[in-house]
Each structure stands twice: as structure tokens, then as C-alpha cells.
Design a protein around this nucleic acid. Structure first.
Lengths: 257, 257
DNA sequence: CGTTTGATTGACACGAGTCAACACCAGTGG
DNA sequence: CCACTGGTGTTGACTCGTGTCAATCAAACG
């Protein structure tokens, strides 16, 4: 874990953090865009695990981006169950939609201790007006989020058992790889089986049994917050995973003209 | 059904169609913005039912908006099943994400005969550069789409039986009402039970039986392409429906400053 | 009229939920 | 140092919601 950063720490103020680097990966940002974006997201704070970043129903006045650690979006239901609708890995913007939509329709909370950048809406909105390229990359990131959400609908609606869980694991691998976390199939992933269950719409018991099946197939292991994917290609094949929906930079989003 | 419109029909060229009116409802568009947007989307063509507007894997060079009729987004699976991930009602943009994302990660197809506006990407991109307010409303519409997708994840992942189907019906009611379609709980909805099943992740048989239960409760009827919602408040209560996620204009998105 | 598409019904199988108990581990406090 | 606690993972037994398969029916259609 990196040390707590003072929000006024001068060295960190201009250095592009993971949030900025992820946006920059889309392309089209000038050095000035990147500098100003880094400046805008230099107020970075430490949050404990299981903390709420933005609650359902809120009308936040600032945006948040995960710099380090894991968070998720979830909806809670009257009967107490919850549905995780997305995981947030380092670099992800937590609540970009709140920039234009009045009320949060879901909660964003940490799953592990996190470093989170606080960016006032006013600052971000001003940036989008003075730096059109920044508006464009934020828009782009919303589109990728949308694509991921649609994939989840298909995963939960049509895939069963091992495929469903396997698909989620594949997605996490690729998203973590994309930000340079994880090496040789090992990922530090502070999720409980209950978290996984809430994400794929299974009960914890069934998630546990499904995890065992994948383990017995020699595809992965998952203990104590460490995910080890033994054979990613086979897991992808089993799960029907196709990375297209993640729109990875390498195989090319369109570049702004 | 309205008559076929020639793409060069002068009277229609500048009149804001439903697509433009929906975007304008977000606010912030000047008369000039609206005029130019209407002009850009004046190439309107008729498509038959069950036609593909944009196929998975495509890299389209134009955007499409439904002006009249119904369409849907769906993903197909190796075993032949499909998952509908969103319905498109008049006014909806079919493939706004393709403006920045290279490949379509799902197919968009018509469910009924449709009038569809064809807007070349180049035209739309130019508009976003010369008319910042247009960029903003398109971004906004992507955020609403994202919110709807998340709600579907929760619906499919955590709600069962009548709640799940009822929730979808409620959403369709509100979205149709928002564009002025449907009166006193009657909606012209050219969906088959198979379509509904593919949307909520049920089999057609189970969808049929669930529909019967809702009918026996006196909440709705659905025959021959006409949905009649007898008691929307009770259906909402049963389904745990909360319209917040649709971010209706009336209870206030934030207006651009 | 045959044909086709969509709705409906019944019988049966199975995936997944529920409930309950237990194991294991890390804290925590006496 | 040990008892106690709470969180997480694991297992078994049982139930039940949904899927599957197949047949029938009604309406639309060429």
C-alpha cells in the first residue's frame, strides 16, 4: 500500500494518476489536457473498506475516481438482498453519470481500503467546456461502462453455473491487466464469495459450489483475496468470453479526428 | 402508420422529429442546435420488421435513431439463444456508442416496421464539435442508457417471477408515456411473448405462465400487440418499480450551466 | 385450405435457493 | 494465554422455481 498522500502534496499534484492515465489511453488528449486533468484529480483521500462513496438517492456535488483498491456499484432491494452491477478497479470513475443526472440510482462503495480522487463537479464541468478533448474521453468512458453493463445483462440472463462465474472472472482479469495489476495470472482481489454471488445473481452457497467446480477443472484458485487463473484461454473458451465488449485500447477504439 | 417519407421531403427536413425532441427535452439546446440536429437527422427511411439495423461486430459509419416503431438491442449466444439487452422506443438513438467505440458488441434490430433516421458519423461528430450543447445531450442520453442497463442487471439478477416481468412492463409504460405513446394504460406494443422472455431471461413457457398470473391479479392484459395496464400503481408496488433510474426530465436532471 | 407463427397447457427434470450446521481464522478483550 | 466473537468458507438435506420437451390450439396469411 502506498502511504497516505496529503492533498496539497506538490509532487503528486501534476503527475497523472491512474484515473488520468486511463482516460489518456483513449487518445486525443494534449499535454495540457493531461496536466489540467491531473491537477483537477489531485485531491486524493484514503477510505476504509466497506465505506460508502456515493449513496443511492444522493445528488453528489463532486465526482470520485478509484486510484487504488477496489469498489463496486450496487443496488439494494427491499428484502435486504443486493445486486452488484459493476466492479470498479483502479482508474475507474465512480459516478460520472452524476455530472448530468440528478439522483444516484445506485450506491458506490469500497470493497477494500481505497485511495479515491475527489473532483468537484464544477471543476470537471468547467474542464469539459474549456477542454473539449476531456469531455470526449469522459463521454467515451461512459460508453465503455454502458457496454460492460450490457454484457452483464447477457451474462446473468443467459449463462448458467460455471460459465456465468467464469465469465465474470475473465472480465476482472482483463480489466486488471489493462491497468497493470496482476502478473502471470495472479491477481490481488479482495472479494468475498458473497461479493461474487451478489454480482452474478447466485446465492453464496451456489457460488461456493460453482467455484469448486472451476477449481476441480484446474482453471483457477481463489483464496484469501488472491485469484490465480491457471488457464485463462481455457476459462475464456468455457465461459464464452469475448473481450470485444471491453473495447480495449489496443484493438482500437476510433481515434478522434 | 404514417406514410413513407422521401428523404428529400422539404417540409420534414427542418421539423424536429421525435429523436430531436427527446434530446431537446434535456434542455440547453438553442434553436439553432435544434434546427441543425433536425437537419442532420432528416434522412428517414422505412425498415420492415425483424430487420437488422446494425449487426454485432460491425463498424458502422452512421448512427441510427428510431422515429417510429420498435426495435431492440440483443446479443446472440453460441447455443442459439439470445438476450435482449434493451428495447428502443421512438426517439431513441440506436448506436450512439459506435461514435467512439470501434466494433458493435451487440446487434440492433427492428421488432416492428420502423422509420429510422440515418445520420452519418461524420455529420454527427462535426455537430458535436461545432455545437457543444449537442455533444452534451448525446452524452446525457448515453448516461440514461447506462442507467437503464444497470437497472436491468438488478431486475434479472435479483427479482423473480411476476416482479421481474412486471418491472419490465412498468419501464415500457413510462418510456412510452414519455414520448406521448399510449393513452389511459393502453399501449401499442408489437412484442411477442418470446421477445419478453428474451429480455427478462425466462423461457417462453415461463413467461407465458407469469403473464397469466399478472393477468389473473387484474393488473394487465396483453393480447395481439396491445398492452393494457389496468392498475399501474399496483403493478409498480408489486414489482418494486422506482422510476428514478429513467431520469425523467420532469423530476429534474441537472441543467447545463 | 394448408402453412406458419404465436399462445397455451401438461408432465417431468434439474439447477439453484434455503436452512442449518460446522470449520477455520483473525481479532479482541479479559 | 485463552475464551469469545464475527466473518468467511464449506457441506448436506431438502424444496421449489424454471427449463425442457411435446402436444394442442387459435389466428393470420398466402
Amino acid at each position: 500500500m502506498s502511504p497516505y498522500r496529503e492533498k496539497t502534496e506538490p509532487a503528486a499534484a501534476n503527475a497523472p494518476n491512474l484515473f488520468v492515465r486511463k482516460l489518456a489511453s483513449f487518445g486525443g488528449l494534449s499535454a495540457e489536457d493531461i496536466r489540467d486533468l491531473a491537477l483537477a484529480s489531485s485531491d486524493i483521500r484514503r477510505l476504509p473498506a466497506d465505506d460508502v462513496i456515493t449513496a443511492e438517492g444522493d445528488t453528489p456535488t463532486r465526482a470520485h475516481a478509484v486510484i487504488e483498491g477496489f469498489a463496486c456499484r450496487y443496488k439494494t432491494f427491499p428484502d435486504g438482498t443486493r445486486q452488484i452491477v459493476d466492479f470498479l478497479v483502479p482508474g475507474d470513475l465512480c459516478d460520472g453519470h452524476a455530472l448530468f443526472l440528478a439522483a444516484m440510482d445506485h450506491t458506490v462503495g469500497t470493497l477494500s481500503p481505497c485511495l479515491v480522487a475527489y473532483v468537484p463537479h464544477k471543476v470537471l464541468l468547467d474542464l469539459t467546456e474549456t477542454h473539449p478533448a476531456i469531455a470526449r474521453v469522459l463521454w467515451w468512458s461512459a460508453l465503455v461502462q454502458e457496454s460492460i453493463a450490457r454484457e452483464w445483462i447477457g451474462n446473468i440472463g443467459r449463462r448458467a453455473g460455471e460459465q456465468r462465474l467464469g465469465h465474470l472472472v475473465c472480465e476482472l482479469c482483463f480489466r486488471l491487466d489493462a491497468v497493470g495489476l496482476g502478473h502471470e495470472g495472479r491477481y490481488n482481489l479482495p472479494l468475498t464469495q458473497t461479493d461474487l454471488a451478489d454480482a452474478i445473481g447466485f446465492s453464496t452457497v451456489h457460488t461456493n459450489r460453482t467455484l469448486q467446480k472451476l477449481r476441480k477443472r484446474g482453471l483457477l484458485s481463489f483464496e484469501g483475496g488472491t485469484l490465480v487463473v491457471v488457464d485463462l484461454p481455457r476459462l475464456e473458451a468455457l465461459s464464452g468470453f469475448d473481450r470485444t465488449y471491453l473495447h480495449p485500447r489496443s484493438d482500437a477504439a476510433k481515434r478522434p479526428s
